[in-house]
């Protein structure tokens, strides 16, 4: 079905890249539609795409330093990411991804539509369900005590109550990303360094605090001192029960 289209598009993208790079096209649940990445890069790209795509805007990205290369995961459409793995510098990779995004905008959007239509590509969208947030708090019209309660003849009283699935819980999240890693060289304080090292785009401030067993305020205030080196990915996510 869409496999052939993906392969053709991937080939076109590869040929158009101004740098030598391995690439992958990844969906927002981490499924890889095309990849020439190494297994290490592929695994990292899957994880980043899965966490980042639901939160990012189109054009947002994350760069991860691998052993011998740099991996860029770039949100190229609403539900697709382009991963580039290359020895080139971060800025060059970002420019390359931007170029791909503008050159293949139509094809990528069409591909996304095709994938959405495919039955194998089922994604749980992070949107609020249409059900009320808390059904038990909804007001029901009160019935005056004098009026007799008579069910309509066509509707027999239900023997079992319909099961109401509770609405999912969502929370606002702010995920810090250390975009200027050169600051790490200047930091001598071990704790500050640990905080900054955890700003890898996959930990919220609350998770960083928990991992280091420090108050969240310490993380927030520390990151405030590195505002030029830190970017935040801000969004909403479902709270795992």
């Amino acid at each position: 079905m869409s496999k052939k289209i993906i392969e053709e598009l991937a080939e076109k993208i590869t040929n158009s890249l101004p740098v030598r790079s391995r690439l992958a096209i990844i969906g927002d649940t981490g499924q890889v539609f095309h990849s020439t990445l190494t297994s290490e890069a592929k695994e990292a790209a899957e994880k980043i795409a899965k966490i980042g795509l639901p939160l990012w805007d189109v054009g947002d990205y994350q760069v991860k330093r691998l052993k011998n290369s740099q991996l860029l995961v770039y949100k190229i459409t609403n539900r697709l990411a382009l991963a580039l793995d290359s020895i080139e510098r971060e800025g060059v990779l970002i420019l390359a991804a931007k170029k791909v995004a503008s050159m293949f905008n139509n094809e990528l959007n069409k591909l996304e539509e095709l994938l959405e239509a495919a039955p194998t590509y089922e994604i749980e969208k992070p949107t609020l369900p249409p059900a009320p947030l808390k059904t038990e708090e909804r007001k029901t019209p009160s019935i005056p005590p004098t009026s007799p309660v008579t069910p309509p003849p066509s509707a027999p009283p239900p023997t079992t109550l319909p099961s109401v699935k509770p609405a999912a819980k969502f929370e606002t999240v702010n995920i810090p990303v250390l975009v200027d890693k050169s600051v790490l060289k200047k930091v001598k304080d071990k704790l500050v360094r640990s905080i900054l090292e955890l700003c890898d785009g996959s930990h919220t401030t609350s998770e960083i605090a928990k991992k280091l067993n420090i108050p969240r305020s310490r993380v927030l205030i520390t990151l405030g001192n590195f505002s030029k080196a830190i970017n935040y990915i801000s969004g909403v996510r479902k709270v795992e029960e």
Binding site: E171, T172, N174, L220, L223, G224, S227, S234
Partner: peptide
């Protein structure tokens, strides 16, 4: 949605709480 002003007022505060981290990090960065 709820027809209850007390609840509406409490929800306004809840919205503020959900905004807290964003506002605080913005303030600290600046």
């Amino acid at each position: 949605e709820y027809g209850d002003p007390v609840k509406a007022n409490a929800l306004l505060k809840k919205l503020g709480r959900a905004t807290g981290e964003y506002i605080y990090t913005t303030y600290l960065a600046a």
